[in-house]
Design a protein around this nucleic acid. Sequence first.
DNA 1: AGAAATTTGTCCGTATGTATC
DNA 2: AGATACATACGGACAAATTTC
Lengths: 140, 140
Amino acid sequence: MPTPHYGQPRYRAIADELRERITSGAIPPGALLPSESALTVEFEASRGTVRQAIAVLREEQVVATEHGRGTYANPYRREGASNADAESETRQRRVAADADLAALFTVEVGSLIIEEQRVTRRNGTVRAVVRTYRRHQSDE
Amino acid sequence: MPTPHYGQPRYRAIADELRERITSGAIPPGALLPSESALTVEFEASRGTVRQAIAVLREEQVVATEHGRGTYANPYRREGASNADAESETRQRRVAADADLAALFTVEVGSLIIEEQRVTRRNGTVRAVVRTYRRHQSDE
DNA sequence: AGAAATTTGTCCGTATGTATC
DNA sequence: AGATACATACGGACAAATTTC
């Protein structure tokens, strides 16, 4: 069978579905998620894909996993209740310097510099996008 | 062949080795790591295991990976404790949204959004340029 | 411009190790 | 001890982004 993943990969779709069950309360805080093999059957995905989905949620601290036990939902609440849904994604890549950046960094236009982008969401909608530019290998 | 991982799993051992090469300077900041297939040969491990090792370093932000390009070492610097001489200039203006920003903010490409730019200098040389993008106050 | 090669991303199936119940 | 559940590891296949020719 081929491996089509047009648009969203399957492990993200599975992660979204599980996250939804947790945030909606279908899986209450502290409860065990279905086992990986159960999820394998339900989503008709391989165990590796299911584990990849759970890894996403673990990184978001939506779940916590214990070896031999299982994966728990929402093991502890964020201390600040204000942190309703402050998701933050970070991405790093190299981009060509535009005229402004080239002038600031004293490099040629088009030189590759580091861009780190953070996307801040609240209640799902993008709040702000922060792009930080640096040079490689600066010296201090 | 069995799959023994007494004590430390292999992917962690590989991660340790690669981290050592980076922190020791054998792989300088900004340089590309060997490709996954090359590491597969060198460590005599499967590609999945190599990728798991790289995932560890990526989470530690010791490396950054780009699709189709490769994995770079240490793209940004640790913030030194000495913030001796930090100046900062701020500028705000309206700019046209590029494809990425348009997608994130769910607006049309070219729509005007707010850009706030801060330039951080130390000892006269530009340290970092931070650009924060937001939408106009319209909804929410 | 376009095709091929390279490199990372996703997904599957299987087997075995280790921790917990 | 046995059953269950997560962790590690292999190998193969195809997809997607980038670079090279």
